[in-house]
Design a protein around this nucleic acid. Sequence first.
DNA 1: TGATTAACTGAACGCATGTTCAAAACAAAC
DNA 2: GTTTGTTTTGAACATGCGTTCAGTTAATCA
Lengths: 196, 196
Amino acid sequence: MARTAGSHSDITGPRVREAALKLFAQQGFAAVSMRQIAGEVGVQVGALYNYTPDKQSLLFDLMKSHMDGLLAAYADNSAVTAEARLHDFVQFHIRFHHDRPDAVFIAYMELRNLTPENFAVIEALRRQYEDRLEDILRAGVASGSFDVPDTKIATLALIAMLTGVNTWFRAGGRLSLEDVEAQYWQMVRKAVSAEG
Amino acid sequence: MARTAGSHSDITGPRVREAALKLFAQQGFAAVSMRQIAGEVGVQVGALYNYTPDKQSLLFDLMKSHMDGLLAAYADNSAVTAEARLHDFVQFHIRFHHDRPDAVFIAYMELRNLTPENFAVIEALRRQYEDRLEDILRAGVASGSFDVPDTKIATLALIAMLTGVNTWFRAGGRLSLEDVEAQYWQMVRKAVSAEG
DNA sequence: TGATTAACTGAACGCATGTTCAAAACAAAC
DNA sequence: GTTTGTTTTGAACATGCGTTCAGTTAATCA
């Protein structure tokens, strides 16, 4: 076999994904054409089909990679107190999402552009992530340090609040990411705490 | 002038808006064609242009109406305690958004499909709404009943959390809207409270 | 009844879409 | 320097897009 090393396929492939991620986040999946992506990469549109069977798969792969990365990156430590675990979660969530705003945006906004089968896969992964937080809340309720009537609702409420950081936070602004983390942690801690 | 009463224009006009609202929410602005909207209304595509100059204006009008309605419907009562005002806000926000999920969805998801001028208008209205909540938080901090380091951050965090209800709540499920309101109020109240 | 005009149709405009594929370009292996 | 096989081009396919507009329909007023 000839032409394996030195080939452009291991360069163009990632570049296609990067361009798609950026453009989908900026303009939305439906508004971005394959020709736009090709233009961003610097190739003709036909070349894209060496790297994805179709546009839908390109979207799905981006979302799946993001969710896989999210689940792989978060390691819960169930040996410590529920409050310490929750603190870890809040810090992790804010940082991880802050570091990849385009992928986060796509994962939340483009769900309706997935085929039903692809949607089910992504939704299951999201559910897994939510379950990690709910485990922490349940542990805290069981030990008496948290007080929330319904751990499922609290889970969804906290994730919505934390993910919201991405919609407004910009590095170099009035506050550092550390400031933001500290303040969100204070709100989260108080929101679920058992009142004295 | 002939043909004013009995005309269809006061029927078709609202139906165009309803169809566009529904379809934009379901599939996204860019993915919906004028022909689809016309099909939903039961007219030919050309007829739509009696009711909107173009597709972009249709989107903008829907978003503007929603934001105007939001600002008109919420009446703050600055005569009572900050905690009572915050309770009112939480109830109002959850209910108002619950009652019009399609408009809410569009107002959050389709901002990037607005022209810069139209975006600025919608963004200013959103800012106005946020300012109403921030006023309440500031009053509570001033009176000592709330404790939040930065009222702007807290405002954005609370709104993200409250709006998140729309992404999962379905009437007829495990919980009533009253249950949800009560639990979110508990979390909000604790999150901003000055600890004993 | 006839004139008026708002509401709508149906077809057309130029252009963009996702996808396919034969042919060309090209880099490495022999 | 020829062979081999991966990568890319460039053109084409059928279809759909937003928008326009001359012409038809039908309800109202005089």
